[in-house]
Structure formats: C-alpha cells, structure tokens
Amino acid sequence: MHIPDGFINVPVSGAAVLVSASAIALALKKSRGSMEQEVAPMAGLTAVFIFAVQMLNFPVAAGTSGHLLGGALAAILVGPWVALLAMTVVISLQAFIFADGGLSAIGLNIFNMGVITVLIGWFTFKFILKFLPKKNSSVVAASAIAAFISVPISALGFVVEYAIGGSGIIDLDKVLGAMLSVHVLIGLGEAAISALTIGAVLATRSDLVYGASRLLPKKDLKIKPVDLR
C-alpha cells in the first residue's frame, strides 16, 4: 500500500503532508507524558513490531501479496495518539532508509496507513466492544473486526487521492473496484495478525493493552503510612 513517487501529483501530495503533519502535531500534544512508566516501552515496541511484520508479505490472490498495515493494532495496544506516532516512525523510516514509499508521497502514506487506519481501527474497535461482554475474547474479536475494516478504508483513501491527483487517464470505477476487492482480502490477513497479537499480549500481560483497560480489575485506593522524617 506504500504509494511510490509519481502516482499522485505534487499539489495533492503536498496537501497530504499538511494534513498528516497537523495530525502528528496533535498526537504529539496529546501523547506527551500520557503513558504510565510501566507501560510506556510499548510505544516504541509497537513501532518495532509493526516494522518487522510489515516485511512479511503474505499471498492474497494470484500474483498479489499484502502485508499488515498495523494502525488498528497499534491503536488498540497503545491508544490512538501514541499509535499515530508509532506509525509515523515506521512509515518514515521505510521511506528514508528502505526506499519503500516515495519521499514525495510520505504525507499520503502517513495519512492512508497511519491516520486512517488508526482512526477507523480505534473507533470501530470501541464501537464493537460496546456490544460485547467484558471479556478478553471480546477484545480479540473487536480487534479482528477493526483491523479488517481499516484496510479497505485505507485503500479508499488512495482511490480518493488518485481521483484528485492521479494521471486522470484510468477509469476511476476500475481503480475503486480493484483496490477494494484486493484490500478486502488483505484485510483478512490484517485481522488475523492483529487478533493473534492482541490475544498473545492479553494472555501474557493484559495490562499492556490500552484498549482492554476497562477490563482490568479496579484497584482500591489505599492509604499508606509515610515516614515524613
């Protein structure tokens, strides 16, 4: 899903840089000092894990592969604001070090694979969770659905960008149909990887899953004697 240089014209790519930069600025503001010391390492670890899993292209149809995007997974693990920062780290390093995703398209790529997947993933997750019992398995199920939906919506982001800033010679209906059909399949892989990951973290350290925080037993406040000398 990494857009290379040249697919989308400069004005639209530039506008995407502005939009993504604003979203990142807001995320920086909201996330500063927002994680408890004990869980804060998850911010960086989420970025590392998503970078690694994004390298694992899986086959989806004849001659086509797909890979995890990870925005929904990140949002459920560390919350949407920190997730956007983690996704920005991953997508930027991919573009600068590995030439994966054009430098001129970095705003588009952060928007499609970061902003859209984090927002859609997070709100879908929260919405689904409302209808499910307060159990770990509900968190896993909601993660799968949220991750699945985030991929075709992200692909839709590309189609809109292509409609405004593409070469204009390709039939847009065809672009829409082709992008959605292949990304629905990739979404199934996204759902499986995200659900497995969330399930594994929940099983080992459920306190590390931001999206499951309402499931944790409430700790009573205790008054402890303090030696003031």
Partner: peptide, 30 residues
Amino acid sequence: VSYFASSNPDGLNKVAIDLGFAEDETTHSN
C-alpha cells in the same frame, strides 16, 4: 522469516500494473 515472504507485488502495485498506471512511478530519490 521475512526471507520467506511473498515477493509478488502488493495490492496497490498489482492494481497499478493491471490498470496501467504503474509506469507513472518515478525513480525514488533514495
């Protein structure tokens, strides 16, 4: 594990090849 990953074009690249806008790609500056 990534050595065993599929080397086929990903969803977007495949669509670009099939529909004929893959040649719009310009050389990556890096």
